[in-house]
Every structure is written in C-alpha cells, then in structure tokens.
Design a protein around this nucleic acid. Structure first.
Lengths: 241, 241
DNA sequence: ACCTGAACACCGTTCAAGT
DNA sequence: ACCTGAACACCGTTCAAGT
C-alpha cells in the first residue's frame, strides 16, 4: 500500500517534520522510520533488526510503529523500496543498449550491497513502489528501444534481475560468513579437501576467490552475449542449438 | 560440521533406528529429524517452522533437538543439503554439454521446488555436504570435459547456480503471495495501472504470466547461448562486445 | 546416553487507556 | 491523533536433573 519513499528534500538537517499546525508534532513518520531502520540494519544485521530495537532507536515503544506499518514485513518492503532509490538518479554513460543493461544490473547490485543484508531484505519482500517499478521500466525500456519485443524484453529483464539477486545474495552471505564462523572460502576448502570432487578441486581457486565483481561481470557477460545472439527482433530461443 | 545426509537405505519402512545394543533406542536421530522437518516445512512453511513445533511433531521437548543440531541454522543447513538429494540419481539424457548443463540446472530448480520455501531454505544456508558438493562437481565437470578451463567452468557454474537460485526464489514467492495477500501478478498489475511505466505496461502480459518454466528456460537459454559463444578454450569475456 | 522441566532473554502484535 | 503500558502468545537456547 505505502510508497514510503519521499526522502524529504525539505531542510538541511535534523529538523522535526512539519505538522498541519495542530497538536504536538508526531515523533514518528514513515520515511524517517525507514531511514533509521536501514541505519540499524547496517549496525546489527537483519536477524537482529527487531521492532523493539527499532522502536528503542527512535525513542518510542514498539507498539507505536504499528501506526505506520501494519506488519514488520510491510516495513521491510518499504526498506527494500528505498534500497533501489539511487539506481536511476544519473544518465547512462553509453548509448549502447547492452552496455546500458549492464549498467543497470551493476547499479542494482551496488544498491543491494549498499546496506548490510540488502539482498536478503530485497529477496524477502515484493516491493511495488516507484523505485522498483521505475527500475524495471528502465530496464525493459532499454531493451525495447533496442528493438526487442515486449515479450523478450520482459523475460530478459527478469533474467537479469534474478541473476543479480542470486549473485548478490551469495556475495553478501560469503562476505561475512552467515553466522560468524569461518568465512565461506575456508569452509569450502575444508569440505573439499578429502580428495573427492576432482572438478570442484580444480576450480577451487576461482570458487574461493573474493573478487565478486569479477564473478558478477562474468555472469553478466554471458547473459548479454546470449541477448546479443538472440538479437532484437528474432524468434524466441529454446535451450537447444 | 555435520553431513546428515545418509538416507538410511536399511529397511523397508517405519522401523526404529538400530542401536548399539545398550539402553533404550533414542527417539531422535539426525536423518529422521531432517525428514520430519522437511515434512513440517511443507505443512506450515518456513516462517512457522519452529524448533518447538518440530519437537512436538517428533514427540519430544524442544531442548532435545539440541543434542543433534547445535543451532536451528545447522538444522536448516542439513535440510538444504537433503533438498538436493535427487539431483544426481540418474544419468544424463543427452551427450551434448550444453544440454547437460541445462539438465542440471533444471534438476536443481525442481529440487528446490520440491519443498515449500525450498529456495529460501537453500539461500539462507551454506550447505557443504555430499549432495551440494557432488552437484557442483558434476556441473563443473560437464563444462571442463567440454573443454572449458577450470576457471571458466567454475565461474559459469556459479552463474548458473545464482540464476537458478534467484529465479526459484522469486518463483516460490510468486506462487503463493509472500504472506497471503493477493498473488504477485495482481499486485503488480494494480501498481502499474496508473498509466506511468509504458515499458512495464507493455511487458505486463509476460511479467504476470505464471508459466515459470518458460521464464526459467528463457534465462537458461541466454546463459547457454553466452557459454556457447564463449566456447571451450577461449579467453575470458568482458561485458562489452 | 538421551531426554525432561524449567527457566532466560527475548520476539511480533494488539489494544485499552492516557494526553 | 499519536503514543504508552501492559499484556498475549509465542520464540531459540541452555542446563540441571532425572532415567
């Protein structure tokens, strides 16, 4: 229901939100709550982001939050929406459609990486606010303007988004071992040690590399190569030949 | 730490697990706990899968589970591992490497779809058991045997897995609206209605289609096309031409 | 060795009552 | 209109004590 994304371009810093004039100004509002929630997310991580802790950070009791968000999930959805806020705030650097698709995918990854557990927050919700819809529209738009049918453009956009989400989810999980145990590379190396899994062993150097940007660019490259092969204005591809 | 994946091929049905001979046979064991947990997952979903409810289903107090799993996360990891159990239990149907990669990706999707919230369970953990490692080894193996370097094979495998995970995550979320509200297609259609987002609007029919297999095959097709273009034994690709 | 009982320190959410 | 206080119905996890 709620858009909850207007970043209040009103005044320089820490001023109270404007009131209609009557009564005390409210201590809470949707936009500020989402901002504090994102700051808290960075501090404590998604698993420790509770309504009670957020309320404490806003100097309020937990129950008060429910005047602005019906459920915690709705708050998380508003947070997910804000995550993508900066994806469309600057022009493309290239006129080439495939470079533009790549740029949008990179911006999405960067946006999700911008907050601790950002990918998990995004994956766990289904935001339908202006930033999410605007991003999807831009991505599909680049493809349609390149000559792809709405059908192909839509499916390709889904593919790019799903790959980016899956990649970033794993990237953030790996960047600081899911709990606090040994980081992912170490665990994988240890598990593979026994001598089985010859192919896995051969690929261990890449798989345990922490150059996540290189991984992302490789996958993105495959996708774009596939799109170029498909070509604007062609019949739908099967998975064969 | 725990592999927890041996599916006990011992006896026909519902028999008590064997004991060393001394004392009462334990009511619990890792393999059976994971199986009951997966059954409960299908019944109630991940959000309602609690240690207490699982204990109840096993006719035991919650504390007893902690003799077999140090944390709930460790149980979820064991569950994730079992999810992939059936991915390698049959031979490939085609000798073509790209068809084999596709088949492995399809098997992974099918495995995750096999249990309610399966993709969320898998994404939330980092299983390093025999099924997960075996699957990765098989996928990388197909690519290496096709002539790809270990480097390319490793990166390509990551790409396929991340896309499959991202896709299936969204598919399962869409298949039964994250909470219970209107299913995803309806919400998207409603959000886009206003008339903005021309490209999104043009693509609405595809985006709201529930033929998830078609979406998956399209994305997989792009990836495989990219891989074929890269070709076994070629230099690493950039994202540009 | 394996499980129970009972507790500890929390959760999300609701809602009368205050101001 | 907006927030507090207090409760309801839970959580994951620990650990002495029983058998």
């Amino acid at each position: 229901m709620s858009a909850a994304s207007t970043p209040s371009p009103s005044s320089p810093s820490g001023v109270r939100p404007a009131t209609t004039g009557r009564g005390r100004p409210p201590k809470l509002d949707q936009a500020r709550t989402v901002e504090v929630a994102l700051a808290l997310l960075d501090e404590v991580g998604l698993d420790a982001l509770t309504m009670r802790r957020l309320a404490e950070a806003m100097d309020v009791r937990a129950g008060a939050l429910y005047r602005y968000f019906a459920t915690k999930h709705e708050l998380l959805t508003a947070m997910a929406e804000v995550l993508l806020a900066d994806c469309l705030d600057r022009p493309f650097r290239s006129p080439d459609w495939s470079e533009r698709v790549a740029e949008l995918a990179r911006r999405m990854r960067t946006a999700l990486l911008g907050h601790r557990d950002g990918a998990r927050v995004y994956a766990g919700t289904h935001a339908t606010g202006a930033h999410t819809l605007g991003f999807a529209d831009a991505l599909i738009g680049v493809l349609r303007e390149a000559g792809f049918t709405a059908d192909h453009a839509g499916r390709a956009a889904l593919t790019v988004v799903h790959f980016t989400l899956g990649h970033t989810l794993e990237e953030q999980a790996a960047r600081q071992g899911v709990d606090a145990g040994p980081a992912d590379p170490e665990r994988l190396r240890a598990a593979v040690a026994p001598g089985q899994y010859p192919h896995l062993t051969a690929a261990l150097p890449v798989l345990t590399s922490t150059d996540f940007t290189a991984h992302f660019e490789f996958g993105l490259g495959l996708l774009l190569q596939g799109l170029r092969a498909l070509g604007p204005g062609t019949a739908p591809p099967g998975t064969g030949g």
